[in-house]
Amino acid sequence: MSIYKSSNRVKNQTLSLSHLRKIWGSEQNVSDKLLSEVSEELNSNVNMCQLNTELRMCHFIAQVMHEVGGKFNLEENLNYSEMALISTFSNYGRTPSDAKNHAYNRATNKKADIEAIANHAYANRMGNGSVESGDGWKYRGRGMLQLTGKSNYISMKTKHNNLWSASVDFVANPDLLLQPKFAVRSALIFWLEHQLYKKADIGASRMVTDSITKVINSKTTSYSERHDNLTDLLKRKVFKDVF
């Protein structure tokens, strides 16, 4: 914990449900309970996890907005078409017949085999075993920044337990990251580990946003959308009264 230096918050206001409700506006899509748990966890860790300025928080939330979407989904969406699988995952690029078998097909009303997709897409990557190991599905993307891969779950376990003086086994119980508290913490650990707060401190330009996006998901096609999120958060001063 001591390896991370943090400055004091300029103000001692509370990041609350009302702030996040300005972003996720419909309670039909996202419950008060979920957003309250997320805001409480963020508020408790703004200093330790280097989210202690308006600009840092806006950069962080701009990325989260795209990762979880309008319904605040804490689990990876694996509903892919055949061509999307081939273009997104190298394993499917090498075996396009598998992409056809696993993808959805609207013309025939065929649903995607999401478990098979995870196991094939992530086989022999990020600490995962073979397709047959089932690691791809077990360690599919979860949390606010979509933690993926067995090696990252192992790292999450070590770093989380050091930072929060806890004993939680995310490797044995990866679905823990679907709980708001741990979903938030997984994203905070990523933010710290990659020192994204230093990039955020540079400013609010497209170049800065892109540099953060590249670390979180280099192959995404959403660079522009993530920057638009940041611009909107700053324009509306969503977190200004917190800092």
Rank of each mutant, 00 (worst) to 15 (best):
S151G: 05
Y4F: 15
N12A: 10
P174E: 05
H194R: 14
I212F: 14
I189D: 09
K157L: 00
S133R: 02
K219S: 10
E115N: 07
Y104L: 03
G127S: 01
R21V: 00
E132A: 14
Y4K: 01
R140L: 04
Y122P: 04
I189H: 12
N217I: 06
M156T: 09
S211T: 10
V171Y: 06
G203W: 14
T221N: 15
E82N: 09
H120W: 15
L35W: 03
P96S: 08
I117M: 07
W164V: 03
Y153L: 05
T231A: 09
G143D: 08
E27M: 04
N124S: 08
D32P: 06
Q28S: 13
N43H: 01
N152W: 12
K100A: 12
I117D: 03
A62I: 05
V10H: 14
K100I: 13
Y139Q: 00
I216D: 03
W164E: 03
I61C: 06
C58M: 02
N119E: 06
L20G: 02
S218L: 08
G70R: 13
K157M: 10
H160G: 03
K111C: 07
G70K: 12
Y104D: 02
G127T: 06
L192C: 04
H102N: 13
F243D: 01
S7Y: 11
N105G: 08
E193N: 11
R185M: 07
Y4D: 02
M126G: 03
S205Y: 13
E40V: 00
G25E: 14
M48H: 13
S130E: 09
F243H: 02
I117Q: 02
A99R: 01
G136R: 04
L147E: 08
K198L: 15
K181V: 06
N29V: 06
K150G: 06
K199I: 15
F243A: 02
M57D: 03
I3R: 14
V184W: 01
R185I: 04
G203T: 14
K150I: 04
S26W: 11
N91T: 09
K71L: 08
Q179L: 15
G141W: 14
N128D: 01
T88F: 07
G141N: 13
Q63N: 09
I23C: 02
I202E: 14
A99W: 09
H66W: 08
D201T: 11
L15P: 04
A118I: 09
G25A: 11
E132K: 12
E75S: 08
T95E: 15
L233F: 01
L192Y: 11
K219P: 05
N8E: 10
T108Q: 11
A166V: 02
F89K: 00
F89R: 06
R106C: 10
L17R: 01
N73S: 12
M83Q: 15
I61Y: 04
R236W: 06
M207E: 15
K219Y: 12
I3G: 12
A116K: 14
M48S: 13
H59E: 07
Q28A: 14
Y92Q: 05
S81P: 06
D169Q: 07
L85N: 04
Y122M: 04
Y92N: 05
L176G: 05
H227I: 10
S16Y: 05
F239H: 01
G203S: 13
K5L: 10
N105Y: 14
S186Y: 11
N124T: 09
M144L: 11
S81H: 07
R206P: 09
S218T: 12
S155C: 07
A112F: 10
